[in-house]
Amino acid sequence: MNNKKELLVQAAIKLFGERDYHSTSVQDIVSLAGVSKGAFYQQFQSKEELLVFIFNHNYYEKVRNELHMVTQNQLLSPTERIMKGIEIQCQIVLENKDFLAMMIKGVAFTEKTISEAMTRETISYVHWFRERIEEQYGSDSDIKPHSMDLASILAGSLKEFFFYHIFCDYAVNPVVLSQYLIERLEDLVEGIIRRQNTARQTTPMLRASELRLNPDVVPVKTFASSVEEIMEWIQQHIADPHKLEEMLRSLQAVADEMDKQPCNPTIIQGMYVYLLSLAKDDKSLIYQLEQAFSLRKP
Rank of each mutant, 00 (worst) to 15 (best):
E186K: 15
G17D: 06
Q196K: 15
R130L: 01
M258Y: 12
Q91N: 15
F162M: 11
G38M: 03
S141P: 08
F40P: 00
D28C: 09
E290I: 00
A101V: 11
K297M: 15
G106L: 04
E95V: 04
M258K: 02
V220W: 09
H22C: 08
E190T: 14
I182S: 11
S157P: 00
Q201C: 11
L100K: 02
E95K: 15
E183R: 10
D256G: 04
E134I: 01
Q10M: 08
R200V: 01
K5F: 04
I143M: 10
I234Q: 05
F162D: 07
D140P: 06
K159Q: 14
V70P: 10
A255L: 07
L188C: 10
D187R: 13
L213N: 14
D149C: 06
I234N: 02
V218Y: 01
M83G: 06
K97Q: 12
F162A: 09
I268C: 08
M118H: 11
S294D: 06
R296I: 01
S209L: 13
T110D: 13
Y272T: 00
V227I: 15
M271S: 05
R207N: 13
P215E: 03
V93K: 06
F99W: 04
S141G: 06
C263S: 12
R19T: 10
K243N: 06
M102V: 07
L32K: 13
F293L: 00
S139I: 03
E66S: 13
S157C: 05
L206S: 10
T119H: 02
F109M: 14
P219W: 04
S77Y: 02
V175E: 15
F53A: 02
V217G: 04
W128M: 07
L94C: 00
S294N: 09
E246I: 00
S152A: 14
D169M: 03
K283S: 14
T113P: 05
E186H: 14
Q261K: 12
V26Q: 10
E111T: 13
L100H: 04
F44E: 05
E135S: 09
T79M: 13
L177Q: 01
E228Y: 01
G270H: 00
K144C: 08
C263D: 09
Q196S: 13
C263K: 09
V107I: 12
L15E: 09
V63K: 02
I192W: 01
L177F: 11
Q235D: 06
R195F: 05
D20C: 14
L51A: 11
L285W: 09
E49V: 12
S23D: 14
V273L: 08
I29G: 06
V35E: 00
A279K: 02
E186F: 03
C168L: 12
D187G: 10
L244T: 01
L185Y: 07
R184W: 05
S226N: 03
E246P: 00
A151P: 10
A108D: 07
F44I: 13
Q74T: 09
M258I: 08
N2V: 11
E229R: 11
L289S: 00
H242I: 05
P204E: 10
Q10P: 00
H146G: 07
K14L: 11
E95H: 12
N3F: 07
D140I: 01
M231N: 03
I286L: 15
C90T: 07
E66G: 03
S124I: 08
K297W: 14
V176T: 15
L188T: 08
D98V: 05
L188I: 05
